[in-house]
Amino acid sequence: MSRIAVRKTYKLYIGGKFPRSESGRTYEAEGQNVARASRKDARDAVQAARGAFPKWAGATPYNRGQVLYRLAEMMETRAADLSRSCSGRREVERAIDRVVWYAGWADKLPQVLGGSNPVAGPYFNFTAPEPTGVVAVLAPELPPLEGLVSRIAPVIVSGNTAVVVTSETRPLAALELAEAIATSDLPDGVVNLLTGYRSELGPILAAHMDVNAIDVTGAGGETTELEILAADNVKRVIRAGSEQSPWEISAFLESKTVWHPVGV
């Protein structure tokens, strides 16, 4: 008699935990019942991300680089599971390599994007990049894993924390990734994953006053409504490319310039 498999229940990933949607709602995607995150789930995710921000932003770049590299290690371990959730082994490898690539940027950004400014006067003046805060990410629909990782990594490597709305039609890759994240050293709340309807969650996050930037790269086409909502707290609205690049990171950075007199 053949054994009946124990199936996985796919839930949200918020603040390092795997809750069901507080609304109790699910929707069916890829043959599974997936949590359909609500307004309150989005609120909880932003709260978790805000809570995690000071410590993650304050971690040393070396530490953040290692944590991201550790995430790549965990993904490698779970490569088989991840492969089943996306287009296959090749996509998983590209996703892992991308995480490794961004991991290496953590302690190089300030040298590439900042530096001292030769002001005309007795002052020392330097500009350093800083994370902008809590970033809402609308992940692309496809490719489900590589697309997701390509948007999350440049956001968090500099110290931002993320609330991610996953691919609506192909959410399982994100949920497999959540398990890799949960077993990596990424602090709870740095990455939060919401499955559900983008048309429902996007406007909630775009209007949320405690979200500092929204990445609409994966939103596809029409973003007018999101941009209007984002104006209320002068949210940064980012539409980026799909290539790996330090400029993908800089889109989620602020520049801070510090002056000090030079004298005896």
Binding site: P122, Y123, P261, V262, G263, V264
Partner: peptide, 12 residues
């Protein structure tokens, strides 16, 4: 008064 200090640039 407290001895304090002087910022040269601002003083000049």
């Amino acid at each position: 008064p407290r001895v304090g200090s002087v910022d040269a640039v601002a003083l000049e």
